[in-house]
Write a protein that binds this DNA or RNA. Structure first.
Lengths: 249, 249
DNA sequence: GAATGTGAAGGCTTTCACAGCT
DNA sequence: AGCTGTGAAAGCCTTCACATTC
């Protein structure tokens, strides 16, 4: 989930469990799709399938929000969209800044899912002066020097860090000092922040490593090691420093 | 976590809990950093801090791998790096394909974290014939027509989907039919896959929505709604279809 | 009849706290 | 003396299954 510490303990924030909060965006997306097809109502079973969860879990999740369904009928799509949006705080406008406009930062700036869900990219910030003024996704890249004034001028409380790992903590410190209280971190490093600041982390290589773990298990169990062996043979000689052949014991 | 279904139930795969598997990459990264600084041993307390977890959790996690520490001393860094790498399957080479070379796909192709941890980008694939042959991150973009042959020629079992949502399921189906059994999905859509195929999902806008939820709580609790109100006032008029003002009840 | 809302049961995960090595 | 490894306790989360409502 989010950071190491920093989340207030299981956020009793009006009683909605973290696990439920994490699924609300899923439901919202499925509901938005139904809404666009003008579907008026949906059952927990149908919606659960569309969102990729099971229906008991979905009903339990919704029960934390209130009794928004009708027995024998299901849920009113528009109404639920509104309630979940409100619960997530998407009925207000959230200006965000993206710091670090490399490949990933540019991809994020261009990502439609932000603008379409209550988020507005207030500014793109990069430390490289040579990039300043360059347009990305319709916005000019601004220099890190302006970071503090951008934050306060736009009432920004959410920052996205897409810098190299080495720069992330300093950027984080400056964001927090300037008033940012929620950070989405794409840099592969652990950020330390004061109490009251939320950090969520997205790490591309971690996800792949988890897949590799399960993939390895499959190969071992189901293919009798044959494929694993074939792959091992292919391994390049000087791959990287991560698997030193030496070891004690 | 991963998909809706599809994970074998709590993967008893030699007894390592999912939650632990998800943290192993974190430990590995922290350990790799220590290794680069030639630190020989580390205590659970120090390593836990570096990885952003608490030490009891870390020790419990390691206990599932075996007894790799020394009481009164700590853990041997190099040895642990090797053991965790092996457990995660990173001592073998994992060829991956990235499908959909837009902004995000290009960012992924350039992402150093892949190559440095046992993963090798075997090919970049895009449906746009105009892009075919263009070089990205040192590799030529290849056309979707070649997908099946690329998969089988390279023994690829892990695929990364970075296409628009509309194309994701079809790409997924083709990957699976060609032999891919693990998928990392960046497209904002639920993929359905047969049993035995793992899907993990990374969704940028979902992470932001979760942050917004907590941010909203903070604003309400700590600032007496003042900032929230200020932000609300700023909301652009015709934002999007996600919060229709209408609703029953 | 159909589908929600929810106690209760069952599983996982985290945390505690201390026995057991070095 | 210091630090790991781990039962036991506590807390979450998921799933079951059914009373309740429309």
């Amino acid at each position: 989930m989010a950071t190491g510490r920093t989340h207030r303990p299981a956020t009793r924030s009006r009683g909605i469990p973290e696990a439920t909060v994490a699924r609300l965006p899923l439901y919202l997306r499925a509901l938005t799709a139904l809404s666009e097809r003008s579907v008026p109502t949906v059952s927990s079973e149908e919606l659960a399938t569309a969102a990729g969860v099971n229906s008991a879990k979905l009903r339990k999740d919704f029960s934390y929000l209130g009794s928004y369904g009708t027995r024998g009928v299901g849920y009113d799509v528009e109404y639920l969209v509104y309630q979940i949006s409100r619960e997530l705080g998407l009925t207000q406008d959230w200006p965000v800044v993206i710091v670090g406009i490399g490949n990933l930062g540019a991809a994020l700036a261009n990502y439609g899912g932000f603008a379409s869900r209550g988020f507005r990219v207030a500014a793109l910030i990069d430390a490289d002066a040579a990039q300043t003024g360059k347009m990305v996704a319709g916005l000019p890249i601004r220099h890190t020097d302006e970071l503090e004034s951008i934050i306060s001028d736009n009432l920004v409380s959410i920052g996205v860090i897409a810098t190299p790992a080495g720069a992330a903590q300093e950027v984080c410190d400056r964001l927090v000092a300037a008033g940012v209280t929620s950070i989405l971190n794409f840099a592969p490093t652990v950020l330390s922040v004061p109490d009251g600041v939320d950090v969520r982390k997205v790490d591309l290589s971690i996800e792949l490593q988890i897949l590799a773990f399960h993939e390895q298990r499959k190969a071992g169990e189901e293919l009798g090691e044959a494929v694993a062996t074939a792959r091992k043979a292919v391994r390049r000689p000087g791959s990287d420093g991560d698997v030193p052949a030496v070891m004690p014991v």
